[in-house]
Amino acid sequence: MVSIRDVAAHAGVSDKTVSRVANGEPNVSPATKVRVEESIAALGYVPNMGARLVRTNRSGVIGLMTDVVSTTPNSVEIIRGVQDSVSTARQSLLIANTSGAPEIEQRVWRTFREHRIDGVLYATMYHRRIRFAARPDIPTVLVNCSTAEEPDLPSVIPDDYEGGQIAANRALDRGHRKIGFVTLNPQIIAAQLRGKAFVDTMTRRRCQIRSDWIRPGYAGEVGEEILCAFDVARDMLQPTDRPTVLLTGNDEIAMQCLFAAQSLNLRVPDDVEVIGFDDFHMISAQVIPPLTTVALPYYQIGMRAADRLLSILAGDISDMSVERLPCPLVERASG
């Protein structure tokens, strides 16, 4: 087995210098760092993590606990953002999926403690408020969620209210005044925030709000929903007095609205426009016409949350707030 002394001899430096490079510590010149890294690669040296743990009480591992994020295609960008941040900091990432089961979550917390995980990123598939059975005793940053019970627990979430304003203003700026809205499940906080933004924007710009043109695209309880957006959109678009644009809760709903318009021989965007939310590329960039949509910044959320956790681990606890990231408009052909 290659030892730290072997690397030091190969690179012509001290054991301590090799240790500094391996642990990502400062006070090593760029040229020396490159030489040591080349020796590590050439010899296949693997640092002794057990020794590091004894010496520093730090494992060099970040835990990512998810409900179903790690198995959900539209949220994989969260993990990519986390991974890019953690890798830059020369940390490793351990991902645990709980499937939303409290007993599995408690087991994961215990495993993280046993393995001396340095810090935890707690991520959810959709923006929601969570409740812990007990406050985490490991430095933790919430990802795509927040908690009212622990106001000093930092979190990074999308600015759903601003995103809702952007979608409504897009429709109004394009001259629409007959605006329909096929929403997410009303029980979801994102639906509530975007719905409030829609009403506030329409009111501020003195545009009539038709309550019969605001309908959910899902039926049922959260987690057990049935997609009904096709029937809802078709029902809205059939009458002569119909919306000229449909805002939607996500790109899945928007796709169903496109299908509904097509079934009625309505052309998008000529006869009716459709604006999505998410920018889930498997839908938004592939449907015809491609969707104009408001993007959820999943990658940026993951990266920013990991950056904040790494700052906390470095001793910076000056900012423990909820951080909202902007949701940009992605212009394509549907509206």
Rank of each mutant, 00 (worst) to 15 (best):
I214N: 02
L93N: 09
D152M: 03
Y298A: 09
D67A: 00
V54D: 12
S311M: 10
I301Q: 10
T244Y: 04
V69E: 03
P136N: 12
F259E: 15
S284R: 06
E103H: 12
G12T: 12
D231T: 11
S321G: 05
S146T: 10
H127E: 08
A306C: 06
Q187Y: 05
R135I: 14
G119C: 08
R58Y: 06
R80N: 05
I138A: 02
Y122S: 07
T203F: 10
Q300E: 12
G100M: 02
E105I: 10
R128C: 01
S155R: 01
P269T: 05
A285L: 04
I275W: 05
R128W: 01
V7Y: 11
S75W: 02
M320R: 15
S146G: 03
L246A: 01
L291Y: 10
R332L: 07
W213D: 07
R80D: 06
R204Y: 15
A41Y: 05
M282K: 08
A8M: 02
N265P: 06
S318A: 15
G50I: 08
L43P: 11
G100H: 09
A148N: 14
E331A: 15
R204M: 15
I62L: 11
F277A: 06
G60I: 08
G24M: 09
M255W: 02
Y45R: 04
E149H: 04
D152I: 01
I253W: 01
M125R: 07
A171P: 04
E105Q: 07
V232P: 06
S14Q: 10
L121M: 10
N250F: 00
R210K: 13
P136R: 02
Y161K: 00
C228D: 08
V46A: 14
R55P: 04
I104K: 14
A148E: 15
S59N: 08
T56S: 15
A285V: 07
L264V: 02
K16Q: 07
P30F: 05
A101I: 14
A168C: 14
I117Q: 14
I189L: 09
D212A: 05
Q165V: 13
A31T: 12
R234P: 08
A22D: 09
A41C: 04
G44P: 01
P26L: 01
A123P: 00
S99T: 00
P269S: 03
A42C: 11
K16R: 00
T111Q: 14
T203M: 07
S99Q: 04
R242S: 06
R128E: 01
Y45N: 13
R135E: 14
G175V: 08
W213P: 07
I214E: 08
